[in-house]
Design a protein around this nucleic acid. Structure first.
Lengths: 204, 204, 204, 204
DNA sequence: CATGAATGAGACTTCATTCAT
DNA sequence: GATGAATGAAGTCTCATTCAT
């Protein structure tokens, strides 16, 4: 036929087409996490995320309204992951020291397996404020968690739990992040911090 | 003729020396601090700083090589201010609790009189890395200070001072910054943190 | 169900292949040439080139790393065009006068059909130096070509061919460019220059 | 004395004060020439010229209306210098070869003692066009001079002197400028060019 | 005359986002 | 859904020029 000259016949495999990208969203999220962690919010372009994911840049906007939404998604996911790990390890009737040890283990583990995520998620929080969402940084939210944890079961040691909750969150975040960079072992980290917190929180 | 006079006596006033604008650099620094604190590094344009200082945008570049240099200057100045206040209050022969109390008072005071400066100076540190300068964030440097302080006089309580130094810095920064926003009194803040740290650091 | 179909036949039109804009690079190059010729390197802004090409300014940077790269591309293209025309006309076994005549014809023709390109490409060469590329101006390179041409077949008339090569290139460029502006005919130009060179180069 | 605290007594030498700047214009011109030659028009800032001259930048505008005026002054001065040297050497009744030799010697001498001036003055001519002044480049004007020289005394060899005048100017400029850079001796340069032109211009 | 701090138009370039295919 | 060429607002920084001293 005449169109044999001008046209080509291409057979597209069913698999190829129907299921080749089962997960472009997932790949974008993973790429976003990697880059936000490595470079921070401002130095990461949607285009970079898409390329890292092996997708065209336009695809980014099929899955996220904009760059901020993508970052928010990253932060929330990180928070949720951590929360889940924390709750999974929570032993209801435990004493204070045990609770602290458990939380630590979880957090340190997380920090180790996702290096930099904590810091990234925590420090860039301000970016999101524009729309009124996420006014509190992830770190502050986490401080609230600690405050809550302190209020509950054990005596609160006479502390204002809001203040001490933030202090603990700050202490952990900073110690974990910096320690990770300086190559100290997780065991040393945990031993020191556990001891530190245990002493600080036990009743006189 | 007049020009036959070969020598002239000129009295230069001590004050003197033509100064059209008393302090454009000082005004820029002040404006920069205000905006970096309010908006962070990325959301502050050199132009905004200049306008805030009541100057043309070109003037900015008369005093700073670029935006990063301006931020660096801001951070260093904040750090130096705090350092000076800390050293002024340092009582050599004091016990641990007294030392902690003194450091706290100073820091809390500083945080109160310069709201947001601490956080701003601390979180945006990464920005500067490009040229290899300021690889450590201000917060990390401050953690090193605490580590040093712990090593010295008192027993270090069996801690790895590097780890605990970072923890303390993180605790203070986070507690102070968040507390400031939530409207808690400085007294409560100080009382709680002092107690917290004192307990954590005292020997068993 | 429909999706059970594993193979699809897709006819791709010969023309096809999604081409929103047939040739934005080509249009940019053409626009750049026009403006560099009319205004020179410094007076031409990337934005102007893009507008001349009917494109947004961002598009410019899709095709050139920066303004200098664009200029370099223009110069190289002009040089290549001329080279190709020169080589196409080269008659291997010809005598000196014939060779000169052939080169002239080509150059004069080129200068006439691309008015100003020669001069522009030649005089702004310095701009590019920054990166060490293109240290020699186009005119100087062309002088080298002439030197080479003189060395080969005919006697070199006892000349230092490097010097005389540059002299010829300069003579042609200047005569052609100025003559073009003063409205003299190409025939007159060619007749005069050929005679001039032929006399200068023939053996005593 | 009391005023020793607040004041300083400075003795300004008569020479220092009265005649120290006999010539800020001259110094500016010299500095401008140096920088225009080294960097070209666009890469030279009035500020640079003033600093090179050891003067404040404001002083520049006491002597030149703007940067273009300064460049124009440079070009005109260079041209005039060369003209003067040419006329000083001109021997009225000489034959063609002698005339050529004389002009060359002058030009080559000038180029050697003012390296780069020729090229700079010639290539940046376009800059000035804006006001309608100096539409012709210095090189073209010089080509006119040669045309004039050819028309007069000797036979013009049947040439269109306008064309050949430009060609000679271009040949000389290019050969001199490039040769200077490649470290060839002035003698070789002169010998070659004189021979070249003499042959080209002698009658058959 | 001389100065240099100050100015702001405008240059170059980036990047979040759109949209025709 | 997927793509990537195209866009232009906006950012950083330069530089010719002015003017109070």
């Amino acid at each position: 036929m005449g169109r044999a000259v001008l046209g080509q016949v291409v057979i597209i495999e069913g698999e190829h087409n129907a299921r080749r990208k089962p997960d472009s969203l997932a790949r974008l999220k993973q790429a976003a996490r990697k880059l936000f962690v490595e470079r921070g919010f401002d130095a990461t372009r949607p285009q970079d995320i898409a390329r890292e994911a092996g997708l065209g840049h336009g695809t980014f906007y099929l899955h996220f309204a904009d760059k901020r939404a993508c970052f928010l998604s990253f932060v929330q996911e990180a928070r949720q992951e951590l929360d889940e790990q924390l709750h999974a390890r929570l032993v209801p009737g435990a004493g204070l020291e045990q609770r602290i040890t458990a939380m630590f283990g979880t957090i340190a583990e997380y920090a180790e397996s996702h290096p930099g995520v904590l810091r990234a998620a925590m420090t860039d929080g301000r970016v999101i404020d524009a729309e009124g969402v996420e006014a509190k940084s992830l770190l502050a939210l986490w401080g609230d968690d600690w405050a809550e944890a302190l209020r509950g079961p054990a005596k609160d040691g006479g502390y204002d739990t809001d203040i001490i909750g933030q202090a603990i969150a700050g202490a952990l975040c900073q110690a974990i992040c910096e320690t990770h960079q300086s190559g100290r072992s997780r065991e040393a980290l945990m031993k020191n911090l556990t001891r530190f917190l245990t002493r600080a929180l036990r009743p006189d």
